[in-house]
């Protein structure tokens, strides 16, 4: 118990706002559909690796660390696609993963959005035109936002997610 109390009162290392406003604006412009205003305060994300090399997953995991603390923006990573609003897909979609990707998307309730994170997810990256992958996520699912990068840094991913939520304010 002593440990927990001392950690409670220590200085927090969370960055004030790691995502720069210009980045948010730029990514905001790339959002393809209108976002329901309800997602302005609470966004549940299901992450899906469709064939990535794990670097993007590590960066997405880093979003939950004390520096980026994505929870404070109302963003939560959920365990089940049925609880999710956004499907965050990384990696070029491999043939072995195609069915799993489609099933995960189908299990999500409306309204739902798809975000492709990383160069491979955006257009297939270095695997474009090879035998093992279908290509970018848009070959299988309707993509609403792309976040390029190899891998995208947590700040860039966060900017993309915040842009999604910020867009929510515009519909009302």
């Amino acid at each position: 118990m002593v440990n927990a109390f001392s950690c409670l009162v220590k200085r927090k290392v969370t960055d004030e706002h790691p995502a720069k406003n210009e980045e948010i604006e730029k990514l905001g412009a790339e959002i393809k559909r209108e976002i329901d205003a309800r997602f302005g305060r609470s966004l549940a994300i299901r992450e899906l690796d469709a064939g990535s090399d794990n670097a993007a997953e590590i960066e997405i995991n880093n979003l939950s660390n004390a520096y980026y603390d994505v929870e404070r923006f109302g963003i939560a990573f959920v365990a089940s696609p049925r609880h999710a609003d956004v499907l965050l897909v990384t990696g070029a979609v491999t043939h072995n993963m195609e069915i799993a990707v489609k099933k995960t998307y189908d299990a999500m309730p409306f309204p739902k959005f798809v975000v492709a994170a990383g160069d491979d997810a955006c257009d297939g990256g270095i695997y474009k035109g090879t035998y093992a992958v279908l290509g970018g996520v848009d070959k299988v699912l309707p993509v609403d936002l792309i976040i390029p990068g190899n891998p995208p840094t947590p700040a860039q991913i966060l900017a993309g997610l915040l842009a999604l939520m910020k867009n929510a304010g515009k519909t009302r």
């Binding site: 690796d49 064939g51 090879t130 093992a132 992958v133």
Partner: peptide
């Protein structure tokens, strides 16, 4: 599942 065909 994430076989991307690196060697080829």
């Amino acid at each position: 599942y994430t076989h991307r065909g690196i060697e080829k």
